[in-house]
Amino acid sequence: MEKTINITLKVWKQRNPKSQGAFETYTLNNISIDSSFLEMLDILNEQLINEGKEPVVFDHDCREGICGMCSLFINGRPHGPDDDVTTCQLHMRKFHDGETITVEPWRSAAFPVIRDLMVDRNAFDKIIQAGGYVSVNTGGVPDANAIPIPKDKADAAMDAASCIGCGACVAACKNGSAMLFVSAKVSQLALLPQGRIETAKRAKAMIAKMDELGFGNCTNTGACEAECPKNVSISNIARLNREFLFAKLKD
């Protein structure tokens, strides 16, 4: 038999970026523990629409943990109480019957709230536009053995590339720092021969943009790494520091 739970939701409601915003409380009954957190929010919204009320606005897209659209600060943790998953992969079995679940948007000066639980993460796109690419035309897919790459480098680049840019690192950081995101984006290219060439330029440009957009300064607390749904390591931050400092010292 399918198990269901009754829950109370405390959800942040905010009409627009300028309005004050406040928590609103909803009760939901008979939620299957097999449903995902976002499916639960869908049920809530359907219930609200049927009652003639405004639904709760939240970001979501692929719902399989790879697009980086879903966010939500659930019960004091980005992407909720489960480890190494995004909100869309979080299931209601992680909550117990009668629990009150607090749902807040990412809170950071660089991520202003658009409405309710949806925040503007354009700042990340601007950082990528500043240098998070390889600027030569790479043509078709080259033969896998054409450029030999050590296995450990390939693995580290792949691990850095697993960053989906969801912003949980900024949301978790007490300083609102985007260093984990930027370091992952710099590392995934710096570790591979094609991206290596522009590393110095890229690190300088992306850090300059990150500072300009009002993200905080990293103090190495490691909260980002602990909350990252993709387990991106702060050793990437050390690599970014290294690349940036060497680049500046060479100037």
């Binding site: 607090t102 809170r107 950071s108 905080g216």
Partner: peptide, 16 residues
């Protein structure tokens, strides 16, 4: 860093 964190604080937050 406090400025970057924003004026609104989390009501419910725990150190990971």
């Amino acid at each position: 860093n406090r400025k970057a964190r924003g004026n609104k604080r989390y009501v419910h937050s725990k150190a990971p």
